[in-house]
Amino acid sequence: MTIEKYLVKKTSLPVLFDKIKASGKVVKAPKKKSHTTDFADVASFSEVTDDYIVTTQSAKSVAFPRVEKLFNYVKSKDGVQITDYALNAIPEVVMWGVRPCDAAGFDPLNAIFTWDINDVIFTTKLKKTTIIGFSCQNADENCFCTSVGGNPGSTQGSDILFTKLSSGDYLAEVISEKGKAIQALAPELFEAAPSEDKEQNLAKVDVKFTKEIIKEKVDKYFESDVWKEQAQRCIGCGTCAFVCPTCACFDIQDENHGKNGHRIRTWDSCCFSQFTLHTSGHNPRPTQDRRWRQRIMHKFSYMPDRINVYGCVGCGRCSRACPVDMNIAEHLTNISKM
C-alpha cells in the first residue's frame, strides 16, 4: 500500500496507546529499568520513556527471544510423547517506540528464518507483531544507519512511523495493513497531514562508508592482518550478538524437569570460542581474530551473497555494549579505506 500521512497531536499519543492496550494486544515499549532502557510490558503510557537513542537490547526478542521452548516432551516407560509448539497461543504484540534501525533489522532476521525452510515459530510471531516506529531526533557517535542504507526517518519495517515535529505533535505515516488496523482503533486521532517537512526534524547521521564498499573490501581482504589488529582487544563475549537486531545464531538444548522437559533454542554467538568447537577438540576458528572476521564477513559478505540482505542496520548497539569498546563503525570505516 502507499504510505498515508496524518497528524497525531502530542496529547493524542497516550490516548492511542490506551486504545491499543484496551484492544487486548500485548504492548511492549521502551521502559527505564534500574540500569538500562529496554522494551518491556508496560502498564500505562506514563511508564513509557522517549529518552533513549536506542534501547540497550534490540526489538528482536519479540520474535526471537533469548529462550524459546520449541516443544515439550514427557518421557515414560513406553516411550516419548511430544507436545508441539502452540502456534495459536502466540499473542498479538505491538512494539511501541521502535527506532527505524531496529525496525529494519527484522528484514535480515526474517530472511534467515525463511531461507528455503520456514521457521514457523519465528514467522508466526513476526506476523502477529505490529511495529510502531519513532524516528530519531537524536543520534550519538555510535549511530551509522546512513552508512548501511538506512536513515533516522526510514519507514522500512515499521507499520506506523511517528516523527516528532517542531510543535511537539507528530507526523504519523501509516505504512502497512497492520498499521491501518492500529489507526482503525482510534481513527479520530489521525488528523489531516501536517505541512511541515519530515527531514528537518530528523537527527543528522553522517555517511561514513557504504555497505557495498565494505562488501567489496572484506571479500578482497579476507586474508589480511587487519582482523588481527582489530580483534586484539576483543575478549570474545556474546554481547555484540545478543544486543544486535540482526544476529540470529542459536543453540539447541534439552531441559529436563523430572520426566518432563522441553527442547529450547537459546541465543548464541560466533564470537564465543566454543561456537565451532568439535567434541574431538578440533576448532575450525581457533582464534579471536578469525571469530571477529566471521562476524564482519557474515554480515557484510555471506548474508548479502546468500540471502540478499546485509546483516547490519547501523544501530551501533554492539559498540555501546561492548565491554572493550570495539567500535564497529570505526573498524568498518578503517576497512572501507583499505
Binding site: 534500574s34 540500569h35 554481547t239 545478543f242 554467538s269
Partner: peptide
C-alpha cells in the same frame, strides 16, 4: 530481579582476569 536481566553474554566472565578457564563450568 537483579539477575533476571542477565542474558548470558558472559561479558562479565570474559572481562574477569580470574575467569581464565578454557572450558568454563557452564560449558
Amino acid at each position: 530481579e537483579e539477575l533476571s536481566e542477565c542474558f548470558k553474554c558472559y561479558a562479565c566472565r570474559a572481562a574477569c582476569p580470574m575467569c581464565y578457564c578454557h572450558k568454563c563450568a557452564v560449558e
